[in-house]
Amino acid sequence: MKKILLGAAALAAMAAPAFAADIPPRPYAKAPAYTAPQVVYNWTGFYIGGHVGGAFAGDNSLQGSDARFLGGVQGGFDYQFAPNWVMGAEAQYSWLPNNNNNGVLFPGGTLVTSNTDQLGSVTGRLGYTWGPALLYAKGGYAWRDGNNLGVSVAGVPQGFTTNGSHKDGYTVGGGLEYMFAPNWSAKAEYQYYNFGNTTFTTGPADIAGRSFRNDEHTAKVGVNYRFGWGGPAAARY
């Protein structure tokens, strides 16, 4: 019996390499390449921010041609859909220096000065986004502090009347906004304000019956903090 067991063990030892040789080698599998996560930008949500820039009166305005500094705040809400379109609403308020030195001197010696030191607007906004960039147009209601007119001849104030204060008007504009960090975006925009025409119904002879446009061209840069719904950006793998 002992000899039989020893013989069987010897046969098994001799057969093991032959069976191992018949097993095919495991094929080599290359590790999958690393794919960086795709960042998906989300413009949906509320935001607040501030801006600075300059204001320039139109050619037929009583503001004069000098540029004036402005600064202010804004806030609004955006909704992204379909999937690269963004629509929303924004309220904006700007302050300008209170300076009545600009004006128009008429041939008869009458000097008319005008000053707008506050501008506001409530607008709708529609834009197209690709990645972190948003190109948009805006338009809606505009307001200003009033028609702060002054009329004088040789430094002496003169009486006058106009056809209204022209405090309310409209605004249109557009710009580019860029999401440069989580919850933060920067923008540059142009905005035009129009408050209609002011007509002098009475006053010195060289201005009585004359009509002038009340408008402002503005250029602004600003920064917004975006609260978002779930954050302004997410990683997609």
Rank of each mutant, 00 (worst) to 15 (best):
K2D: 15
K2I: 11
P24F: 04
P24Q: 06
P25Q: 03
P25T: 02
A29I: 13
A33T: 10
V40R: 13
W43Y: 11
G45T: 03
G49K: 01
G49D: 03
H51P: 07
V52G: 14
A57P: 08
A57H: 11
G58V: 00
D59P: 05
D59A: 14
S61V: 00
G64I: 00
S65M: 08
A67C: 04
R68E: 15
L70I: 00
G72K: 09
G72F: 06
G72Y: 11
G75P: 03
P83S: 14
N84W: 12
W85C: 01
M87D: 14
G88H: 06
A89E: 04
Q92R: 14
P97N: 10
P97F: 03
N99Q: 08
N101F: 08
G108E: 03
G108W: 10
G108V: 00
N115Q: 12
Q118K: 13
L119C: 07
S121K: 07
V122W: 07
G124K: 09
R125V: 01
R125Y: 04
G127H: 05
G127P: 03
G127N: 08
Y128A: 10
W130D: 12
P132N: 13
A133K: 04
Y136W: 06
Y136P: 05
A137Q: 11
A137D: 09
G139N: 06
Y141V: 00
W143T: 03
G146F: 07
N148S: 09
S152D: 12
G155F: 06
G155W: 04
V156T: 13
G159V: 04
G159F: 04
F160A: 01
H166Q: 11
H166I: 00
K167Y: 10
G169D: 05
Y170A: 07
T171W: 08
G174M: 01
E177H: 03
E177I: 00
M179H: 05
M179D: 15
F180R: 07
F180A: 04
N183W: 05
Y190R: 04
Q191S: 06
Q191H: 07
Q191W: 09
Y193N: 05
Y193T: 00
F195N: 02
G196Q: 07
G196T: 02
N197C: 05
T198F: 02
T199N: 09
T201M: 01
G203Y: 05
P204T: 00
D206T: 05
I207H: 07
N214Q: 14
E216F: 13
T218R: 02
V221F: 09
N224E: 10
R226M: 05
F227Y: 13
F227D: 08
G230Q: 06
G231L: 02
A235F: 11
R236P: 06
Y237L: 10
